[in-house]
Amino acid sequence: MKDIFVLMEHRRGELRDISLEMLCGASQLGGNVVAVLLGSGVDSFAEKAAGYADKVLYVDDPMFENYNSEAYQKALSALIKEHQPGLVLIGNTAQGVDMAPALAVELGAPLVTDIIALEMEGDKPKPTRQFYGGKLNAHMTLKDAGMYILTVREATFQVGEPTKSGEIVKVENPVKEEITYRKFVEYVEPEVGEVDITQSTMLVGVGRGIREDKNLPIVEELAKVLGADLAASRAVVDAGWLPPDRQVGISGKTVKPKLYLAVGISGAFQHVTGMKGSELIVAINKDPDAPIFSIADYGIVDDLFKVVPKLTEKIKELKGA
């Protein structure tokens, strides 16, 4: 089997979890695992990756201090052409998704994005991904090719103990010209709001099932009676019904309250990623197949507009008793 390239992802001085996850996943497939690290003065990342890889290809250049898809694509495609791996794994992240399709087009390599499981048939990957917000799994067959590219969803593979000690090979930056047509400028932190939901003991998470902002009072009332804070799915924040600092999920916050009561949230993985560590998860949703029920401890399959006011009432009664 040919080598497997795994692109290391880092941001603001941190090697991101997805990097080691993919190295561990790749190690289960057979074949040499090569970590590809593009960075500037990140020797410690190279050493960390070496614990999980058979080899680390490390390009150390100021060009790679911050992510730039164009510079990454140029460097990666040059390294791929030189080393001819059979499979390239890239994180299905805001970085990876911004580069992998262009790389695949350039190299004529079949790409499947956002995979959640992977088997091999000889040299050919057989990935599984999801459709319809996680409601169905799709089993994909790639076109025959000499090399394949996959972007891997975060937490698809678990990080184990470092058992390897791959050789760290510093290679010259194959990108000679300055990239002028796309330049990194700065990072801007998300705004901080009045409530820090990562510190809340209890959260009532509101999803698109609430339908209109004029319906918010019924969940506000529930949260008030419980002594919980309100959190939201992306849809509710996009619609402007709750402020961005209430958003839970990949692009929002990761929360671990004692209780997460999901109201009208279907449970797409983007949201679930941010709240699955909650101690007790309860979901109210009218769709019995909503993915949220697979991670919830308790569920009510019904119309939230009927259940939530009743729940508020019952909690009030118990509190009064």
């Binding site: 790409l111 499947v112 169905l136 089993h139 308790y298 009743k310």
Partner: peptide, 25 residues
């Protein structure tokens, strides 16, 4: 296309939530 959808399946759920039965009350 790069890839063809061979088939769909319903995601396996590990431990489903305990669904509470009854009317909203």
């Amino acid at each position: 296309s790069w890839a063809i959808l061979e088939k769909f399946s319903v995601p396996e759920v590990g431990e489903m939530a305990e669904i509470l039965q009854g009317d909203p009350e």
